[in-house]
Each structure stands twice: as structure tokens, then as C-alpha cells.
């Protein structure tokens, strides 16, 4: 570590630049983490709102209804299946329209039994509906139709574009940190050469740079976490107060991924970048 401190004392700007590049790139990445979590939260909301409903045809026996319920429940794409029998459907109808038993002619129940199916993934809704229709016991299978398809389209677009942007940001992060580290190590090439010629092992040479890389990654990542944490704490509280009916991601859900990604990713990137750069120089001089 003494070689690291020597370099730090001589050229602190390299260390500061390393920390800052990690801090800034992590900061940008944090915005995308927020975007992803928010999207996920919205998806959860949609999932609840657009449950698939399948109404049984008249005269389907109860055993067959149970059999179909079990069959659908066993599908991998299905999260939950709830059976709404004729009595429950009638009760819900009365409750919804604030009617009493007397308002409906006695003895006859015009409401068919139905299944409420919750998919694991929103994108599977159309496929699930098609599969259920094929069973041949349903009169009607509905799932919000056009609205859901439009929302799904928007979601797919957002995830697609977001994916490309996240990928580009990640490449940018890799290049920025990688080049910063390479430039720094190249600057110390002569020092590495001298150390090697007076008998330092590769491990000794690597150790001083890896220590520096770890510290840079840790400090840069931690500062990105602290600053982003404060920012999102207030930002989310502001959003919550300003648009209380919308589904905002909770800060508590955001805290852990942010900490893990900031510290882990910056540490890994910084360490691996340093290792690659030092190894390249060592390969050249040996």
C-alpha cells in the first residue's frame, strides 16, 4: 500500500478523477434503477387491474368447473385462479348496484360461474386467454381487451428502449472507468518497470494498484449511494405528496438495490479494470 499512498500524495488528481468517474456513472445508473423499479411497480398495478375473466357456458357441471380450475392453476404462466361461482356472482351484482334480494325474481340465478385468472407476467395475458378459449367450456373470455394490449405495447416499448439505453449507459460506464484506470496505470508504467526490475513480484505490483482500485470504487460507489439516497428520499416524498394516487416506488424498496448495485458494481468494475490494465502493462514489460 505504500506505493499507493506515494502515488496518492504525488498525484491526488488521478485518485479524485477515478472516484468522480465512478460517482458520476453510478449516479446516472441510479436514475435507471429508479426507472426500472417504478416500471415494475406500475406493472404490478396493471396486473391487479386487468385480471382475466372467463365465464362458463350454461350447464357446465360443478366437477368439470373444478377440474378446469385445477388445470389452469397448474399452468406455469398462471399465478392465481379464483373461482367465482353463480351465488358469489349474484351477490357481487347486488352489492355493486346496491340492490336487495327482492329486486331480482326469486329462484332464478342468471349469473354464470366464472374464473378470475391472474397471470405471472402481464405479457402472457393474450396467450392465456387464447389457451383458455381452446378448453371449450367458456362462453366468454375477457381481459380488458384493447386497453391492456395498448398498455402492454407501451410497456414493451418502454422496456425495449430502456434496455437499449441501460445497455448503452453500461457500455459508457465500462469505457469511462476502463479508460480512466488504463490511463492511470499507463502513467505509472515506468514505476512498474522499475519495481519489476528490482525484484518485485507481479503480486506485489498488482496489490498496490488493486488496493487503489478498490478504494476508488468503494468511495465513488458509496458517495453515489449517499447522494442518490438523499436525492430520492426527498424526490419520492415530493412525488408522494404531489400525486398521492399514483403508484410510486417506496424508498424502502429502493434503498437495498441501490446500496448493493452502487458498492458492488463500482467495486467490481474498478477492481477488474485495474487488474486488466496492470496485467497488460506487466505482460508488455515482462
Amino acid at each position: 500500500m505504500k506505493f499507493f499512498f506515494r502515488r496518492l500524495a504525488r498525484k491526488p488528481s488521478f485518485f479524485i478523477m477515478g472516484c468522480l468517474s465512478i460517482f458520476l456513472t453510478q449516479g446516472i445508473l441510479n436514475l435507471f434503477i429508479f426507472g426500472y423499479l417504478e416500471l415494475d411497480r406500475m406493472k404490478e398495478m396493471w396486473k391487479g387491474s386487468f385480471t382475466l375473466r372467463a365465464f362458463f357456458a350454461e350447464g357446465v357441471p360443478e366437477e368439470r368447473i373444478r377440474e378446469v380450475q385445477d388445470k389452469i392453476q397448474s399452468w406455469a404462466a398462471v399465478q392465481q385462479v379464483v373461482l367465482v361461482d353463480a351465488e358469489e356472482a349474484r351477490r357481487r351484482f347486488l352489492q355493486y348496484f346496491e340492490l336487495t334480494e327482492e329486486d331480482l325474481p326469486g329462484g332464478v340465478n342468471p349469473f354464470p360461474a366464472s374464473l378470475e385468472v391472474l397471470p405471472r407476467k402481464l405479457e402472457d395475458l393474450p396467450k392465456l386467454a387464447a389457451e383458455m378459449k381452446k378448453i371449450g367450456v367458456f362462453d366468454e373470455v375477457v381481459y380488458g381487451g384493447k386497453n391492456v394490449e395498448e398498455l402492454l405495447q407501451f410497456h414493451r416499448f418502454f422496456v425495449g428502449v430502456g434496455g437499449v439505453v441501460v445497455f448503452l449507459v453500461f457500455v459508457f460506464v465500462l469505457l469511462l472507468i476502463g479508460n480512466m484506470v488504463t490511463l492511470k496505470v499507463r502513467f505509472y508504467q515506468e514505476e512498474i518497470r522499475v519495481l519489476y526490475l528490482v525484484g518485485a513480484t507481479f503480486r506485489q505490483i498488482r496489490a498496490s494498484f488493486l488496493g487503489e482500485g478498490f478504494l476508488e470504487g468503494f468511495l465513488g460507489g458509496m458517495s453515489a449511494f449517499v447522494v442518490s439516497g438523499f436525492f430520492f428520499r426527498f424526490f419520492l416524498s415530493f412525488l408522494e405528496n404531489s400525486f398521492p394516487t399514483f403508484f410510486w416506488v417506496r424508498f424502502e424498496d429502493f434503498f437495498l438495490p441501490l446500496l448493493l448495485i452502487n458498492v458492488f458494481l463500482s467495486g467490481v468494475l474498478s477492481l477488474s479494470g485495474t487488474l486488466v490494465a496492470v496485467n497488460n502493462v506487466l505482460r508488455e514489460i515482462s
Partner: peptide, 21 residues
């Protein structure tokens, strides 16, 4: 090699000193 070099004392033609140190 490092262990070989630790036992040597070498004055290089181009000195090989670290100018910033």
C-alpha cells in the same frame, strides 16, 4: 525472475530511476 533479481544489484545504462519519486 523476481527472486533472481532481488539478489542482484544493477546499475542500468539508462539508470531507470522514477523521476517523480
Amino acid at each position: 525472475l523476481p527472486f533472481l533479481r532481488r539478489g542482484l544489484g544493477v546499475i542500468f545504462q539508462d539508470l531507470r530511476l522514477v523521476p517523480e519519486w
